[in-house]
Design a protein around this nucleic acid. Structure first.
Length: 276
DNA sequence: CGTCGCTCCTGGATGC
DNA sequence: TGCATCCAGGAGCGAC
């Protein structure tokens, strides 16, 4: 569950080799609302005969580039899965879309909570998609510099945790990696962003990159239902220091890890290592 | 524009 | 034991 940047990147990497060069034979849509802004019949017709030329990740979005100047944009939200399957495989519960390829292999979109969305747009209209349009900087990209981070924090009066989750600020951080980064940087999630010292800002900057990088190296965090494109679990759940550890002793100081709702989301932190 | 709260969903966990 | 309620949380949306 909860695909964030490392999980979406892992899905991308697991599918890339298998799907590049494949030609769509069509798409069966079982739940219309998943396929946003397009009639399922049109969707099937437009995909038919198009070849996948490449896959890109932007924040938590996956973009499939197709021939004919088209792009298919997939957001897994919380419980979405993209699974590469053979036609014999039994159709799992909550399978909402099945993509067929000309070689008879399939890509299936499975999503228990039905929050995930799929768009099909011309490449030149990608920037008009709400969400993609306003997406912030890539935290593992060149433009996410320490200077940028410092400068952005300076005028923000919001709490640091909700700010880290703001996709128009930095793209791809979700609840798990936000809590983990704040713990590593020893910063309380309720601190007002603008009040972080230069030292704290630098620590948080490094911690964000570190937790995301490790998440990718460990092929994602599989807590509930996250799987990559081949149905494999990640191992980063074994690397978490505070997320889901409320009631347990802090790995650094032994004090009990707390859980508190901040900005409407559960936040896990050590009250001693992350003083307010 | 920044910030906040509500909403969409299912199913596992928790409460009485 | 059974039923009701809560909770998980990404992001679009409307309100202020």
């Amino acid at each position: 569950m909860m695909p964030e940047l490392p999980e979406v990147e892992t899905v991308k990497r697991s599918l890339e080799g298998k799907l590049k060069g494949k030609t769509f034979a069509g798409a069966e849509v079982y739940l219309d609302k998943i396929v946003k802004d397009i009639d399922p019949v049109d969707f099937d017709q437009k995909l038919k005969g198009k070849k996948i030329t490449g896959i890109e990740r932007r924040g938590k979005y996956l973009i499939f580039y197709l021939t004919g100047g088209l792009a298919m944009v997939v957001h897994l939200r919380m419980t979405g899965q993209l699974l590469y399957c053979s036609p014999e495989q039994e159709k799992a519960k909550h399978t909402h879309v099945i993509f067929h390829f000309s070689d008879s292999d399939q890509l299936r979109f499975v999503d228990q909570r039905q929050f995930g969305r799929i768009h099909l747009v011309p490449v030149k209209e990608l920037d008009n998609l709400p969400g993609l349009k306003s997406l912030g900087v890539e935290p593992l990209g060149k433009t996410f510099t320490r200077e940028f981070f410092k400068k952005e924090l300076r005028n923000r009066r919001t709490k640091i945790k909700p700010l880290l989750l703001d996709q128009t600020f930095v793209a791809g951080i979700g609840n798990i990696y936000a809590d983990e980064a704040l713990f590593r940087a020893m910063i309380n999630p309720e601190r007002v962003a603008a009040t972080l010292s230069p030292r704290e800002t630098a620590r948080l900057y490094m911690a964000i990159k570190e937790v995301l990088q490790e998440g990718i190296e460990n092929k994602g965090t599989s807590i509930k239902d996250y799987l990559d494109g081949e149905g494999n679990q990640g191992t980063n759940q074994n690397n978490l220091r505070v997320y889901g550890r409320h009631g347990e002793p802090c790995v650094k100081c032994g004090k009990t890890v707390e859980k508190k709702s901040i900005g409407g989301r559960s936040s896990h932190f050590c009250p001693k290592c992350q003083k307010l």
